[in-house]
Amino acid sequence: MSDYSTPLRRARGLGSAKRGVGHFISQRVSAVALLLLAPWVLWSGYRLAGGGYETAQAWLGRPTHAVLLILTLLAGLYHGQLGLRVIVEDYVEAELPRAALLILNVFVAAVVAALAIVCILGVSLTNGTV
């Protein structure tokens, strides 16, 4: 079957060719960051398990630990928020619930990120050992 339409005509309506890859790239970049951070998180969880309040305080008093924990939470919330966005876009068809969930998704990630940073810095700066 011959098709005389131009490439532009065939591409129209199929989505962006420019910033459309932004989500894809962001997801991969945060994935690489988390690939580096996840082993540290598992190791830290193993070390802190059953350790109690003072152990956790002293642990978070180390700047390296506070920095890595903040980075983990930021990268994790960002990556998770990107993933949850796709799930909402895939499964929620009705326009209003969809928009509401997409907004809620961003808000939850932002609020949790801000809250966690303040708490981590609070513990870190009052128990600081450089």
Binding site: L77, G83, L84, A116, V123
Partner: peptide, 19 residues
Amino acid sequence: GVAIYAGILMLAGWAYALH
């Protein structure tokens, strides 16, 4: 991925409780 997101919220909760 969804389960891990719940885990991240629990990790943030841990930091909150510690503070």
